[in-house]
Write a protein that binds this DNA or RNA. Structure first.
Lengths: 160, 160
DNA sequence: GCGGTTTAGGAACGGTCGTTCTTGACCGAT
DNA sequence: ATCGGTCAAGAACGACCGTTCCTAAACCGC
């Protein structure tokens, strides 16, 4: 495979990460392609050439979020050091927002999103379940629900 | 005040309830005025005459949901009988979905929605807090978070 | 009946959506 | 230098959005 033609002036992963940040703030339909073009600094044509469609970019951003944000947090939790910091990163900072929005808003309308969300939730649940010395009677499922709900509350109150 | 003119052919509260049901399934931007006209059986002009705008109808639906769905559930919980049924109505059935969507998706973009959501969450939290014989160490805040998160999980997995 | 008022029914509006097309600049290999 | 290819830039597309306007029908008080 020989590279031919003008090289692209943007880094695909950087753009994907920026898209993830944007999709984490507003609902899918609330983020226009114009917004993406403006915040990502990449032209429409390049976006469509690279990701195919707005949905393609969203799916790429969601996958990136799971593997480059959630997975490191999971790894950190599994390392056993500072489980409190995991809680903080997830609830206080917005590291769960894209997954949360995807679960609540997109998943019911997009089976592919639903599948990614389901897998991510499973990963999180399992990781929490494997934490030693979890208070008795508290499964990973319950602890994860508490995490998600806590973030819902914080997010809802953060505006106004 | 004397009534003059053709009487309306629909019940305002029935329409509001139907709108609430619709807004509970999809995101705000995902529900078009055409959808509302079709599912509610009321024509555009009447909707705009009655509620002013799509946002006005949404706010009416949200208020109705809080006072006619959540409040009765709260009252039932406070009555002390069958607290398990409260949990079931809220998580298994969709009785929390409109509030959940409003909290996650609308509240950050609409301060009036945020205010209604904040008050509703406060009501729920207080009601749970006042339940006697709550397991020690479990505040209403934590129990409500768990409720919300559980519903997020169920909702995300219900599609696909 | 009649006049006044409100609803019902659609057509129509400007704006914005996601997407595509057109044009020219750019780069690597020949 | 030239050709083949990709990229950048912006205009343009049809479709749909929320909203408004216009006309006819239905009802009340007189």
């Amino acid at each position: 495979m020989v590279i031919v033609g003008r090289p692209r002036g943007f880094d695909e992963e950087t753009v994907t990460a920026a898209a993830a940040a944007l999709f984490a703030t507003r609902a899918y339909d609330g983020v226009g392609v114009d917004d993406l073009v403006q915040h990502l600094g990449v032209h429409r044509n390049s976006l469509y050439k690279t990701f195919g469609s707005k949905r393609g970019l969203y799916l790429a951003a969601l996958h990136w979020h799971v593997s480059h944000v959630l997975q490191p947090l999971i790894d950190q939790l599994r390392s056993g050091r500072d489980p409190e910091q995991f809680f903080d990163h997830v609830t206080r900072k917005g590291n769960l927002d894209l997954l949360l929005l995807a679960a609540v808003e997109r998943a019911p309308a997009d089976t592919e999103v639903a599948a990614v969300v389901a897998q991510a939730l499973q990963l999180l649940e399992q990781a929490i379940d494997d934490v030693p010395m979890l208070p008795s009677g508290r499964t990973g499922k319950i602890a994860l629900s508490e995490l998600l709900g806590e973030r819902v509350r914080v997010r809802a109150l953060s505006a106004g």
